[in-house]
């Protein structure tokens, strides 16, 4: 096998880790609240700006900046739910989609207003590791590991805690969880906080690799939606697997052609697959 192709494959797997984290967050929110947050990737953008300014502007140590960004993103998730989702919770699904679409406009424009359209980088250069002539970015390796740990932690939380079981129960039958003593409104807030927190965690990993600018959400937001749909909306394991399929297509496609065309390939693959399996690859 071509050594550069192998490198692309490995980088694809590593990219999949971060995408998986975001897909988990979006799927969790969709599965429980039943609303697609079109602006989900823009919460990542906000958290990346927070890291940038905390670290470069206020000289906050990086780990602390990360922690603050994660907590901030989780709070933003709660805020989004309270201000935008809760009022439209019983509206038509399209209205819910559009309400978060309005949020997307707002966040991107507000970021432009505050920070301008400059590309900003936190300037942390992590080494590139060499394994038997294969070069792997350390930042991506960390991102993959953290993504995996995050996914496992979320799985454990949903599987073994009362709150986690209540979240899964709500996703299956929202009308009667009240009879179990579960307050659905509280679960929505918890889920929005976790979803926001995962976006914050992803922001930490992305800030190590990419520049932040107001429209960075547009570059990977659509990819995350695609992954979630491919995995079956609300199906967290499906989304997890789909992350790695899509990231491979992007990585290998990028190796043979340009980045844009690799995304074109991924989106086309997605559209064609939807015709074959209209409810996603892993539909129940």
């Amino acid at each position: 096998m071509d050594i550069y192709l192998l490198e692309a494959v490995i980088n694809g797997i590593l990219l999949g880790g971060v995408l998986a984290l975001l897909a988990l967050g979006l799927n969790l929110i969709f599965g429980v609240v039943d609303v697609i947050w079109i602006a989900y990737a823009d919460i990542v953008m906000c958290a990346m700006y927070a890291i940038y300014f905390l670290y470069t502007g206020l000289s906050v140590p990086l780990p602390l900046a990360f922690l603050i960004a994660i907590i901030g993103a989780a709070s933003l998730g709660v805020l989004v739910h309270l201000l935008i989702i809760a009022p439209v919770l019983n509206s038509a699904p399209l209205n819910q989609l559009l309400a978060t679409g309005g949020l997307l406009f707002f966040l991107q424009s507000f970021a432009t207003l505050l920070f301008g359209t400059d590309f900003r980088n936190i300037g942390v250069r992590l080494p590139v590791l060499e394994f038997a002539t294969i070069y792997v970015s350390f930042a991506r390796l960390i991102a993959f590991a953290v993504g995996l740990i995050g996914a496992i932690a979320l799985y454990g939380f949903l599987k073994w805690t009362y709150l986690g079981i209540a979240i899964r129960a709500l996703a299956q039958d929202r009308d009667i969880v009240g009879l179990m003593g579960v307050d659905p409104r509280r679960i929505y807030l918890v889920v929005s906080a976790i979803g926001g927190g995962l976006a914050g965690l992803a922001a930490c990993l992305l800030a190590l690799q990419y520049d932040v600018h107001p429209f960075i959400g547009n570059t990977f937001g659509p990819v995350i939606f695609m992954i979630c749909v491919l995995g079956g909306l609300g199906n967290m394991i499906g989304g997890f697997v789909a992350s790695f399929i899509i990231s491979q297509i992007i990585a290998i496609g990028g190796y043979y052609s340009s980045t844009e065309l690799s995304y074109v390939l991924a989106f086309t693959f997605f559209i064609v697959l939807m015709f074959i399996r209209p409810r996603g690859l892993f539909a129940r």
Binding site: V88, G102, L103, F106, Q108, S109, L114, G116, T117
Partner: peptide
Amino acid sequence: VGAANTIYGILLVLCIIFMP
């Protein structure tokens, strides 16, 4: 730059919530 669209975004959300 961006101020106009910021307000536009807010109005969109309000419109969806109050004038579905």
